[in-house]
């Protein structure tokens, strides 16, 4: 009997969790592009001014990052300054939750038709590789192994810990700056 009234609260909590994770991921994408050479090399191939969006259809949470050039990203929150060049869209908030709660890998979400790509598929692959790299840095190995196809065998603990600390510091700084500005 208690389950029914709690259901809307659970759905609301799920939505808030996805929103929060999108904010963390957006800021962390900017962060990893500032601290990790491999992520920068991957991003460098994107056109300058390239706008990437990850969103939940039809009007759910979203994150927008811009490639400033040289492999560096800038997080725009959920408002693109102009039409985006590439949009990766979850069909439903439940599907986004499966991915950002690390129950389903990004590649599995694509294979399960839970996500759509609107834009150049090669850029979508590039962004997915950067997101994967971000996840292996910022998540504990056990969780990261659930989030990516293969945990990189050559990633040593000191590099992971150091990179994660630097990315988290940048994410925290951005959250702090945003809070102070509002």
């Amino acid at each position: 009997m208690l389950a029914k009234p709690l259901r809307p609260m659970a759905l609301q909590a799920r939505r808030l969790y996805v929103e929060l994770m999108f904010q963390v991921m957006g800021r962390a994408l900017q962060g990893i592009s500032e601290v990790d050479q491999a992520a920068r090399d991957e991003a460098r191939e994107l056109p300058e001014g390239f706008l990437f969006e990850m969103m939940v259809r039809p009007n759910g949470p979203s994150l927008v990052v811009e490639h400033l050039g040289g492999g560096r990203f800038h997080y725009h929150g959920d408002n693109p300054p102009r039409p985006v060049d590439l949009s990766i869209q979850f069909k439903h908030i439940a599907h986004a939750f499966l991915v950002v709660s690390f129950q389903e890998k990004t590649s599995e979400a694509f294979a399960h038709d839970r996500m759509l790509v609107d834009g150049d598929i090669s850029y979508a692959l590039r962004m997915t590789r950067i997101l994967n790299r971000l996840e292996v840095f910022i998540l504990p190995k056990l969780v990261a192994s659930r989030a990516v196809k293969e945990y990189p065998a050559n990633l040593k603990l000191p590099q992971k810990v150091l990179s994660a600390a630097r990315i988290y510091l940048k994410v925290a700084t951005q959250f702090f700056d945003t809070a102070r500005a509002s």
């Binding site: 590649s107 694509f110 294979a111 598929i121 090669s122 979508a124 692959l125 590039r126 997915t128 994967n132 990516v148 196809k149 293969e150």
Partner: peptide, 13 residues
């Protein structure tokens, strides 16, 4: 090949 859409569905990264 790394930028080809098919690679997303390959079982290994």
């Amino acid at each position: 090949a790394l930028d080809d859409g098919s690679i997303m569905f390959n079982p290994r990264e």
